[in-house]
Amino acid sequence: MLELRHVSKSFNQKSILQNISFKIKKGETICLLGVSGSGKSTILKMIAGLEIPDGGQILFNNIDLTSTPPHLRDFGLVFQDFNLFPHLNVFDNIAFGLKMRKINDNQIQLRVAALLEQVNLSGFEKRNISELSGGEQQRVALARALAPQPRLLMFDEPLGALDKSLKDDLLNEIRSILHNENIPAIYVTHDAEEAFAIADRILILQDGVIIRDDTPEEIWKNPKYVEVAKILGIGNVVEGEVIAKNKIKTEFGIFDIDCKKNKGEKVNLLITQSSKSKDEMINIKVEDIVYKQNQFEVKSRGAKFLVKEKTKIGQTIKVTVQVQCLE
Protein backbone atom coordinates (compact mmCIF):
# COMPACT_ATOMS: atom_id res chain seq x y z
CA MET A 1 0.00 0.00 0.00
CA LEU A 2 2.27 2.83 1.21
CA GLU A 3 5.72 2.93 -0.25
CA LEU A 4 8.62 5.35 0.27
CA ARG A 5 11.34 5.32 -2.38
CA HIS A 6 14.71 6.91 -1.64
CA VAL A 7 13.19 9.82 0.23
CA SER A 8 15.58 12.48 1.50
CA LYS A 9 15.15 15.78 3.31
CA SER A 10 17.39 18.49 4.68
CA PHE A 11 16.78 21.70 6.63
CA ASN A 12 19.16 24.64 6.28
CA GLN A 13 21.68 22.53 4.35
CA LYS A 14 21.70 19.98 7.18
CA SER A 15 20.66 16.54 6.07
CA ILE A 16 17.85 15.15 8.22
CA LEU A 17 16.90 12.04 6.25
CA GLN A 18 18.80 10.09 3.63
CA ASN A 19 17.56 7.48 1.22
CA ILE A 20 14.56 6.33 3.25
CA SER A 21 12.79 3.42 1.58
CA PHE A 22 10.16 1.09 3.01
CA LYS A 23 6.77 -0.43 2.29
CA ILE A 24 3.72 -1.09 4.43
CA LYS A 25 1.30 -3.89 3.61
CA LYS A 26 -2.45 -3.81 4.20
CA GLY A 27 -3.30 -4.08 7.88
CA GLU A 28 0.33 -3.93 8.90
CA THR A 29 1.56 -1.75 11.74
CA ILE A 30 5.13 -0.61 11.48
CA CYS A 31 7.02 1.24 14.11
CA LEU A 32 9.67 3.88 13.52
CA LEU A 33 11.95 3.65 16.51
CA GLY A 34 14.73 6.12 17.20
CA VAL A 35 16.06 8.64 19.65
CA SER A 36 14.71 12.19 19.43
CA GLY A 37 16.24 14.10 16.57
CA SER A 38 16.65 10.99 14.44
CA GLY A 39 14.16 12.33 11.88
CA LYS A 40 11.16 10.15 12.75
CA SER A 41 8.61 12.96 12.88
CA THR A 42 9.88 14.41 9.62
CA ILE A 43 9.08 11.12 7.87
CA LEU A 44 5.50 11.32 9.15
CA LYS A 45 5.18 14.94 8.10
CA MET A 46 6.31 14.07 4.60
CA ILE A 47 3.90 11.16 4.36
CA ALA A 48 1.13 13.47 5.62
CA GLY A 49 2.12 16.11 3.08
CA LEU A 50 3.07 18.75 5.66
CA GLU A 51 6.67 18.68 4.43
CA ILE A 52 7.81 18.14 0.85
CA PRO A 53 10.75 15.72 0.38
CA ASP A 54 13.86 17.06 -1.34
CA GLY A 55 14.21 13.83 -3.26
CA GLY A 56 12.49 10.49 -3.72
CA GLN A 57 8.88 9.45 -3.99
CA ILE A 58 5.95 8.65 -1.73
CA LEU A 59 3.39 6.29 -3.25
CA PHE A 60 0.11 4.85 -2.09
CA ASN A 61 -1.34 1.93 -4.05
CA ASN A 62 1.33 2.74 -6.66
CA ILE A 63 0.04 6.29 -7.13
CA ASP A 64 2.63 9.02 -6.60
CA LEU A 65 1.52 11.33 -3.79
CA THR A 66 4.78 13.21 -3.36
CA SER A 67 3.32 16.58 -4.25
CA THR A 68 -0.33 16.00 -3.32
CA PRO A 69 -1.49 18.56 -0.71
CA PRO A 70 -2.24 17.08 2.74
CA HIS A 71 -6.01 17.47 2.63
CA LEU A 72 -6.29 15.26 -0.45
CA ARG A 73 -4.23 12.37 0.90
CA ASP A 74 -6.81 10.82 3.18
CA PHE A 75 -4.33 9.92 5.90
CA GLY A 76 -4.83 10.29 9.63
CA LEU A 77 -2.25 11.69 12.03
CA VAL A 78 -2.27 11.65 15.84
CA PHE A 79 0.19 13.99 17.52
CA GLN A 80 2.02 13.70 20.82
CA ASP A 81 0.36 16.71 22.42
CA PHE A 82 -3.06 15.84 21.05
CA ASN A 83 -3.49 19.10 19.09
CA LEU A 84 -7.21 19.19 19.60
CA PHE A 85 -8.91 22.38 18.45
CA PRO A 86 -9.38 24.40 21.65
CA HIS A 87 -12.30 26.40 20.27
CA LEU A 88 -14.37 23.32 19.42
CA ASN A 89 -16.00 20.80 21.75
CA VAL A 90 -15.39 17.05 21.67
CA PHE A 91 -18.11 16.42 19.09
CA ASP A 92 -16.91 19.14 16.72
CA ASN A 93 -13.31 18.01 17.05
CA ILE A 94 -14.16 14.47 16.04
CA ALA A 95 -16.58 15.65 13.36
CA PHE A 96 -14.03 18.04 11.81
CA GLY A 97 -12.69 15.62 9.20
CA LEU A 98 -16.20 14.44 8.35
CA LYS A 99 -17.45 18.00 7.88
CA MET A 100 -14.51 18.73 5.60
CA ARG A 101 -15.67 15.77 3.50
CA LYS A 102 -19.20 17.23 3.34
CA ILE A 103 -20.79 14.21 4.94
CA ASN A 104 -24.41 14.79 5.97
CA ASP A 105 -25.21 15.66 9.56
CA ASN A 106 -27.10 12.47 10.44
CA GLN A 107 -24.23 10.29 9.40
CA ILE A 108 -21.80 12.51 11.29
CA GLN A 109 -23.91 12.11 14.45
CA LEU A 110 -23.91 8.35 14.12
CA ARG A 111 -20.22 8.10 13.28
CA VAL A 112 -19.12 10.34 16.16
CA ALA A 113 -21.28 8.43 18.64
CA ALA A 114 -19.83 5.12 17.44
CA LEU A 115 -16.27 6.44 17.70
CA LEU A 116 -16.83 7.81 21.20
CA GLU A 117 -18.05 4.41 22.22
CA GLN A 118 -15.02 2.80 20.64
CA VAL A 119 -12.66 4.99 22.68
CA ASN A 120 -14.79 4.64 25.85
CA LEU A 121 -15.92 8.25 25.95
CA SER A 122 -19.65 7.89 25.30
CA GLY A 123 -21.57 10.96 26.38
CA PHE A 124 -18.58 13.31 26.11
CA GLU A 125 -19.93 15.09 23.00
CA LYS A 126 -20.57 18.48 24.57
CA ARG A 127 -17.45 18.62 26.74
CA ASN A 128 -14.89 21.33 26.20
CA ILE A 129 -11.35 20.25 25.43
CA SER A 130 -10.00 22.08 28.48
CA GLU A 131 -12.19 19.93 30.75
CA LEU A 132 -10.57 16.69 29.58
CA SER A 133 -7.68 14.84 31.19
CA GLY A 134 -4.59 13.99 29.17
CA GLY A 135 -5.76 10.43 28.53
CA GLU A 136 -9.22 11.59 27.49
CA GLN A 137 -7.72 14.17 25.16
CA GLN A 138 -5.61 11.52 23.50
CA ARG A 139 -8.68 9.30 23.06
CA VAL A 140 -10.51 12.18 21.39
CA ALA A 141 -7.49 12.77 19.17
CA LEU A 142 -7.56 9.10 18.21
CA ALA A 143 -11.27 9.23 17.45
CA ARG A 144 -10.77 12.40 15.42
CA ALA A 145 -8.11 10.73 13.30
CA LEU A 146 -10.21 7.58 12.82
CA ALA A 147 -13.42 9.45 11.97
CA PRO A 148 -12.88 10.01 8.24
CA GLN A 149 -11.75 6.37 7.86
CA PRO A 150 -8.28 7.25 6.61
CA ARG A 151 -6.38 4.95 4.28
CA LEU A 152 -3.39 5.09 6.61
CA LEU A 153 -3.05 6.07 10.25
CA MET A 154 0.05 7.70 11.69
CA PHE A 155 0.98 8.21 15.32
CA ASP A 156 3.68 10.68 16.34
CA GLU A 157 4.74 9.67 19.86
CA PRO A 158 1.07 9.52 20.79
CA LEU A 159 1.63 8.47 24.38
CA GLY A 160 4.70 10.56 25.10
CA ALA A 161 2.87 13.03 27.32
CA LEU A 162 1.03 10.45 29.42
CA ASP A 163 2.04 8.56 32.54
CA LYS A 164 2.91 4.90 32.66
CA SER A 165 -0.39 3.20 33.60
CA LEU A 166 -2.40 5.33 31.16
CA LYS A 167 0.15 4.52 28.50
CA ASP A 168 -0.37 0.77 28.85
CA ASP A 169 -4.16 1.09 28.70
CA LEU A 170 -4.11 3.31 25.64
CA LEU A 171 -1.50 1.19 23.92
CA ASN A 172 -3.81 -1.81 24.23
CA GLU A 173 -6.71 0.22 22.92
CA ILE A 174 -4.75 1.46 19.94
CA ARG A 175 -3.60 -2.05 19.20
CA SER A 176 -7.09 -3.49 19.25
CA ILE A 177 -8.47 -0.64 17.16
CA LEU A 178 -5.76 -1.09 14.55
CA HIS A 179 -6.40 -4.81 14.57
CA ASN A 180 -10.16 -4.39 14.10
CA GLU A 181 -10.03 -1.68 11.50
CA ASN A 182 -7.31 -3.39 9.51
CA ILE A 183 -5.78 0.00 8.65
CA PRO A 184 -2.08 0.17 7.82
CA ALA A 185 -0.38 2.24 10.47
CA ILE A 186 2.93 3.90 11.23
CA TYR A 187 3.76 4.39 14.87
CA VAL A 188 6.64 6.69 15.79
CA THR A 189 8.26 6.40 19.19
CA HIS A 190 11.53 6.51 21.07
CA ASP A 191 10.27 3.93 23.56
CA ALA A 192 11.36 0.39 22.63
CA GLU A 193 8.76 -1.15 24.93
CA GLU A 194 5.92 0.60 23.07
CA ALA A 195 7.42 -0.40 19.75
CA PHE A 196 7.61 -4.07 20.69
CA ALA A 197 4.09 -3.98 22.08
CA ILE A 198 2.44 -2.62 18.97
CA ALA A 199 4.51 -3.28 15.86
CA ASP A 200 4.36 -6.02 13.26
CA ARG A 201 7.63 -4.64 11.98
CA ILE A 202 10.15 -2.27 13.51
CA LEU A 203 12.27 0.22 11.57
CA ILE A 204 15.14 1.62 13.55
CA LEU A 205 16.22 5.09 12.58
CA GLN A 206 19.64 6.45 13.40
CA ASP A 207 20.87 9.86 12.20
CA GLY A 208 18.42 9.98 9.32
CA VAL A 209 19.12 6.45 8.05
CA ILE A 210 17.12 3.28 8.58
CA ILE A 211 19.61 0.87 10.09
CA ARG A 212 17.28 -2.02 10.80
CA ASP A 213 13.97 -3.17 9.29
CA ASP A 214 12.70 -6.44 10.71
CA THR A 215 10.12 -8.16 12.90
CA PRO A 216 10.33 -7.53 16.64
CA GLU A 217 11.40 -11.15 17.28
CA GLU A 218 14.27 -11.02 14.81
CA ILE A 219 15.48 -7.67 16.13
CA TRP A 220 15.35 -8.92 19.68
CA LYS A 221 17.16 -12.13 18.80
CA ASN A 222 19.82 -10.43 16.74
CA PRO A 223 20.15 -6.68 17.22
CA LYS A 224 23.20 -6.75 14.94
CA TYR A 225 24.23 -3.11 15.59
CA VAL A 226 25.53 -1.38 18.68
CA GLU A 227 22.95 1.42 18.24
CA VAL A 228 20.09 -1.05 17.98
CA ALA A 229 21.19 -2.85 21.11
CA LYS A 230 21.39 0.47 22.91
CA ILE A 231 17.97 1.70 21.76
CA LEU A 232 16.40 -1.61 22.71
CA GLY A 233 18.23 -1.61 26.01
CA ILE A 234 19.11 -5.29 25.70
CA GLY A 235 22.16 -6.63 27.54
CA ASN A 236 25.52 -4.97 27.84
CA VAL A 237 27.54 -3.60 24.96
CA VAL A 238 31.18 -4.30 25.69
CA GLU A 239 34.27 -3.35 23.72
CA GLY A 240 36.83 -6.00 22.91
CA GLU A 241 39.87 -6.70 20.80
CA VAL A 242 40.58 -9.66 18.53
CA ILE A 243 43.74 -11.26 19.93
CA ALA A 244 43.69 -14.44 17.86
CA LYS A 245 41.33 -16.23 15.52
CA ASN A 246 38.04 -16.75 17.36
CA LYS A 247 39.45 -15.17 20.51
CA ILE A 248 38.25 -11.79 21.75
CA LYS A 249 39.62 -10.13 24.83
CA THR A 250 37.36 -7.91 26.94
CA GLU A 251 37.25 -6.50 30.43
CA PHE A 252 35.19 -9.53 31.39
CA GLY A 253 37.66 -12.06 30.10
CA ILE A 254 38.43 -13.76 26.80
CA PHE A 255 35.54 -15.15 24.75
CA ASP A 256 35.64 -17.80 22.02
CA ILE A 257 33.65 -16.22 19.23
CA ASP A 258 34.17 -15.50 15.54
CA CYS A 259 33.33 -11.93 14.63
CA LYS A 260 34.98 -12.20 11.21
CA LYS A 261 37.52 -9.55 12.06
CA ASN A 262 41.27 -9.59 11.77
CA LYS A 263 43.68 -9.82 14.64
CA GLY A 264 44.19 -6.54 16.46
CA GLU A 265 40.83 -5.05 15.37
CA LYS A 266 38.37 -3.66 17.90
CA VAL A 267 34.93 -5.21 18.11
CA ASN A 268 31.74 -4.62 20.08
CA LEU A 269 30.16 -7.55 21.83
CA LEU A 270 26.67 -7.89 23.20
CA ILE A 271 26.74 -9.72 26.47
CA THR A 272 23.33 -10.89 27.63
CA GLN A 273 22.62 -12.99 30.66
CA SER A 274 21.44 -16.50 30.02
CA SER A 275 20.40 -19.49 32.06
CA LYS A 276 21.59 -22.17 29.69
CA SER A 277 24.48 -24.04 31.23
CA LYS A 278 26.29 -24.53 27.94
CA ASP A 279 26.84 -20.79 27.61
CA GLU A 280 29.93 -18.95 28.74
CA MET A 281 30.63 -18.44 32.38
CA ILE A 282 32.31 -15.23 33.51
CA ASN A 283 33.57 -13.89 36.81
CA ILE A 284 32.60 -10.37 37.75
CA LYS A 285 33.59 -8.19 40.64
CA VAL A 286 30.60 -6.55 42.32
CA GLU A 287 30.86 -2.75 42.35
CA ASP A 288 27.29 -1.80 43.22
CA ILE A 289 24.08 -3.61 44.12
CA VAL A 290 20.45 -2.50 43.79
CA TYR A 291 17.50 -4.59 44.91
CA LYS A 292 15.08 -4.98 42.00
CA GLN A 293 11.91 -7.04 41.98
CA ASN A 294 13.05 -10.11 43.85
CA GLN A 295 16.52 -9.97 42.34
CA PHE A 296 19.71 -8.06 42.80
CA GLU A 297 21.05 -5.92 40.01
CA VAL A 298 24.80 -6.00 40.16
CA LYS A 299 26.93 -3.42 38.42
CA SER A 300 30.45 -4.06 37.28
CA ARG A 301 32.50 -1.95 34.89
CA GLY A 302 29.44 -0.28 33.42
CA ALA A 303 27.65 -3.59 32.76
CA LYS A 304 24.58 -4.82 34.64
CA PHE A 305 23.65 -8.36 35.65
CA LEU A 306 20.86 -9.85 37.70
CA VAL A 307 21.64 -12.34 40.44
CA LYS A 308 19.41 -14.28 42.83
CA GLU A 309 21.57 -14.26 45.93
CA LYS A 310 22.53 -11.22 47.94
CA THR A 311 26.13 -10.30 47.35
CA LYS A 312 28.56 -7.87 48.83
CA ILE A 313 30.51 -5.09 47.18
CA GLY A 314 34.00 -6.32 46.36
CA GLN A 315 32.89 -9.94 46.15
CA THR A 316 33.51 -11.88 42.91
CA ILE A 317 30.61 -13.90 41.51
CA LYS A 318 29.96 -16.17 38.53
CA VAL A 319 27.41 -15.28 35.84
CA THR A 320 26.30 -17.29 32.79
CA VAL A 321 26.15 -15.15 29.65
CA GLN A 322 25.54 -15.32 25.93
CA VAL A 323 27.89 -13.38 23.68
CA GLN A 324 27.08 -11.95 20.24
CA CYS A 325 29.06 -9.89 17.77
CA LEU A 326 27.77 -6.44 16.93
CA GLU A 327 28.61 -4.22 14.03
Binding site: K45, A48, G49, L50, P69, P70, H71, L72, R73, D74, F75, G76, L77, F79, D81, N83, F85, P86, F96, G97, M100, R101, R144, A145, P148
Partner: peptide, 21 residues
Protein backbone atom coordinates in the same frame (compact mmCIF):
# COMPACT_ATOMS: atom_id res chain seq x y z
CA UNK B 1 0.15 26.55 17.44
CA UNK B 2 0.92 25.82 13.80
CA UNK B 3 0.35 22.15 14.53
CA UNK B 4 -3.36 22.89 14.92
CA UNK B 5 -3.37 24.08 11.34
CA UNK B 6 -1.41 20.97 10.39
CA UNK B 7 -3.99 18.80 12.11
CA UNK B 8 -6.74 20.49 10.16
CA UNK B 9 -4.87 20.01 6.90
CA UNK B 10 -4.37 16.31 7.52
CA UNK B 11 -8.02 15.94 8.47
CA UNK B 12 -8.95 17.12 5.00
CA UNK B 13 -9.24 20.91 5.26
CA UNK B 14 -7.85 22.86 2.32
CA UNK B 15 -5.94 26.02 3.13
CA UNK B 16 -9.04 28.21 2.98
CA UNK B 17 -11.07 25.91 5.25
CA UNK B 18 -8.14 25.72 7.64
CA UNK B 19 -8.16 29.49 7.88
CA UNK B 20 -11.95 29.66 8.06
CA UNK B 21 -12.53 26.98 10.69
Amino acid sequence: DSRLENSARVLGADSFSTWRY
